[in-house]
């Protein structure tokens, strides 16, 4: 589906000294530098895979997405998506992909979503009966039938995002790019969108490439993670091996009946994250010492509740960004 070899993208950045005289000087003497956004990136994504592109802001995730969809032209390297060079933007290529942008509406703002869907039916050359069947299925799955005739600008963010998804899936793309699809949505809406994408992907075997800052999205939707830091690939593997990058650890949350000594030696080796009132702590404990640590906590502190789960991906990311040498 996607084959990238030594893919790079540099952006030209214009520097201007601050202030009025800086502006005047820059009028005659412009200073530029090349900022590498993606460096020698290799990637292989097969049919039907669900891959999460992770990384902090400015890491190069969106630049990669833009190159994969043909919006921007790579500076160097080889890239083939669905057997096409994306930036050539051939008709066949565009008929087979879709990009959902959480931060940018692709629907026409001033008219009802249904009008946009009819336009997209024509653009993607979808036969009338197929269009009706797919539209009905999507509309009932996302429960938006009463909203089809409402002007897009009058929809809530969650409703609009559902419409964006319909717009992108009407032509049943083989390759679906999701760029922050749940950004700004409340928790219920986020969950619904996630469940919907997963259901859709399972039914049609669509290949999905996702970027998101919400780790719950990644956890729910991706089976493979590609970590990007400073434009370079730093990890590429299954989500479970990503979670165990920091060793075999468990995430433990303990709450107490009354405030406890936060300086106690029991906590220190386990990266304690305290609530301000000292009534609750979150710990990252190696499985090897889990049993004895848990016993010590129960013995020495007035434990009210104790819960344990595998390390959330959010925590792994946070830790990895601080300890990049682990990668």
């Amino acid at each position: 589906m996607i084959h990238a070899t030594a893919l790079s993208k540099n952006f030209r950045v214009y520097h201007k000294a601050p202030g009025f005289w800086g502006s005047v000087r820059s009028f005659w003497q412009r200073q530029y530098s090349d900022k590498p956004a993606v460096k020698a990136f290799d990637l292989e994504i097969g049919k039907g895979e669900r891959v999460g592109l992770l990384g902090p802001n400015g890491a190069g995730k969106t630049t990669l997405m833009k190159m994969f969809t043909g919006i921007i032209v790579p500076s160097s390297g080889q890239l083939s998506v669905l057997g096409h060079q994306p930036h050539a933007r051939s008709r066949d290529f565009r008929l087979r992909i879709a990009l959902v942008m959480g931060q940018k509406s692709q629907l026409w703002w001033d008219i009802p979503a249904m009008d946009s869907f009819v336009l997209l039916q024509r653009y993607y050359e979808i036969e009338e009966s197929t269009f009706r069947r797919r539209l009905n299925a999507l509309v009932s799955l996302l429960d938006v039938a009463p909203l089809l005739q409402v002007h897009v600008r009058k929809l809530s963010l969650g409703e609009r995002m559902k419409m964006e998804l319909i717009a992108c899936l009407l032509h049943q793309p083989e390759l679906l790019f999701l760029d922050e699809p749940t950004i700004g949505l409340d928790l219920v809406a986020q969950r619904k969108i996630r469940e919907f994408i997963l259901e859709w992907q399972r039914e049609y075997g669509t290949t999905v490439l996702l970027t998101s800052h919400y780790m719950a999205d990644v956890d729910a939707l991706c089976e493979r993670i590609v970590l990007v830091l400073n434009g370079q690939k730093r990890f590429d593997g299954g989500i479970r091996s990503f979670e165990s990058l920091l060793g075999r650890q468990k995430y433990v949350s303990v709450s107490f009946e009354q405030p406890v000594d936060t300086q106690s030696a029991v906590w220190q080796p386990h990266d304690p994250q305290w609530q301000a009132d000292g009534l609750q702590v979150e710990l990252r404990i190696d499985e090897a010492v889990l049993r004895e640590t848990a016993m010590a906590i129960f013995r020495d502190f007035p434990v009210q509740s104790f819960s344990m789960e595998k390390l959330p991906i959010e925590r792994v990311m946070h830790q990895l960004l601080q300890e990049t040498e682990v990668l």
């Binding site: 026409w108 001033d110 008219i111 009008d115 946009s116 009819v118 336009l119 039916q121 024509r122 653009y123 050359e125 002007h151």
Partner: peptide, 22 residues
């Protein structure tokens, strides 16, 4: 025919947009 449909659909959607704000 497909191209003609695309052109015509774009014309129609533009009419709708132009007439949205009377």
């Amino acid at each position: 025919k497909a191209e003609w449909h695309k052109w015509w659909a774009t014309v129609v959607i533009n009419w709708r947009r132009l007439l949205a704000y009377k």
